Amino acid sequence: MGTNVESSSQEDDRTWRQQVYEIVFEADTPAGVLFDVLLLAAIFLSVMVVMLESVESLRLQYGPLLVGAEWFFTVLFTVEYGVRIACARRPLRYIFSFYGIVDLLAILPTYLIALPISSIAETQRLTTIRALRLLRAFRIFKLAHMLSEANALRSAIWAARAKVAVFLSFVVISVVIVGSAMHLIEGGRLDESGQATPSGFDSIPESMYWAVVTMTTVGYGDVSPTTALGKALAACMMLLGYCMIIVPTGIVSAEFAQAAKRTVSARVCENCMAEGHERDARYCKYCGTML
């Protein structure tokens, strides 16, 4: 009799954990969709609070209200983090996963700010607090929990990694060559007295900075060539930048189109916490566990 009661209790506990798991980690059920929508609203509001707190006039006028809102969202995300750990089949795997670290960073800075740091100078403490407040804005990464398209984009970028690496290698080579050429052409400016004058191309790294800015079509204007040969090389660099800027877009877009053809569900494997499974999949494609 005692064995039957214990077995029934274990079955109820297993069922409870599975139900909570489906709501928290998946979005294929009405309850899961509702949970994601509420969490989405909480993330946006919490990030908005962090942004408003950075405005000095609003912080002085509504400081206690913003602090209260910040603690409300911190406690809310703490409860969510605890629930995810409680219902995960392998809690440590979730804790040290990318999303687990993001969830931890969403709540940790607020608790660290509240700690008294008497051994650190006041200016250093203010700098630390600013950095921790900045970390709270990274809660926006929690949105990836609810975006199934994020898996397709991540797969597309990973599939195109070799092509992107070749493209970046070409960009680096171009920047080094053009930067060295501009240092040779523009780096030896002399004034009327024969003294060297700063030109912005006084070293190869400085010239490479100009090449990167020019290739990306930003063109700050803080460094610019003055000689005819330098201007001609700059024009070639600008045209090369216009031609090259579309390459990574085309590569990733092609891979993304291929990834989009494979429809995936929002199911998360209980064993390895992996996502991106096809809708008709019965087993995890990474570890083989039944979904």
Results as ranks from 00 to 15, higher is better:
F201R: 00
D222K: 12
M182S: 08
Y209F: 05
G221C: 09
P225Y: 15
S224A: 09
E186Y: 02
T217V: 12
V223G: 10
T216M: 12
S180F: 02
M215F: 09
A181S: 14
S180D: 03
G179I: 12
H183R: 09
I177K: 06
M215T: 08
P225H: 15
G200A: 10
G187W: 00
R189I: 04
D191A: 14
V176P: 06
G179S: 08
M208T: 05
D202R: 04
F201D: 00
G219V: 03
A196L: 13
R189F: 12
E186F: 02
G219K: 07
G179P: 00
E192N: 08
P198L: 13
S180V: 04
I204L: 09
T216L: 14
V176N: 02
T216V: 11
G188R: 07
A181V: 09
S180H: 07
V218P: 09
L190W: 07
G187D: 00
S203I: 10
P225A: 13
P205H: 03
Q195R: 13
H183D: 05
K231G: 15
V223K: 12
Q195C: 11
P198Y: 14
Q195N: 14
S199H: 03
I177E: 03
V223W: 10
P225E: 15
A228C: 10
A211S: 03
F201G: 00
H183T: 06
M182L: 08
M215I: 13
L184P: 10
D222F: 13
Q195D: 15
L184C: 13
D202S: 04
M182Y: 06
P205W: 02
H183C: 11
S207R: 01
V212D: 01
V212L: 07
G194M: 00
I185R: 06
S203C: 06
P225D: 14
P198S: 12
P205E: 01
D222V: 12
D202L: 04
A228H: 15
L184D: 11
G188F: 07
S193Q: 04
T227L: 13
S207H: 02
W210M: 00
S180K: 03
T227E: 01
P205L: 01
A228V: 14
G200N: 11
D222S: 15
L190N: 03
P198H: 14
S193D: 11
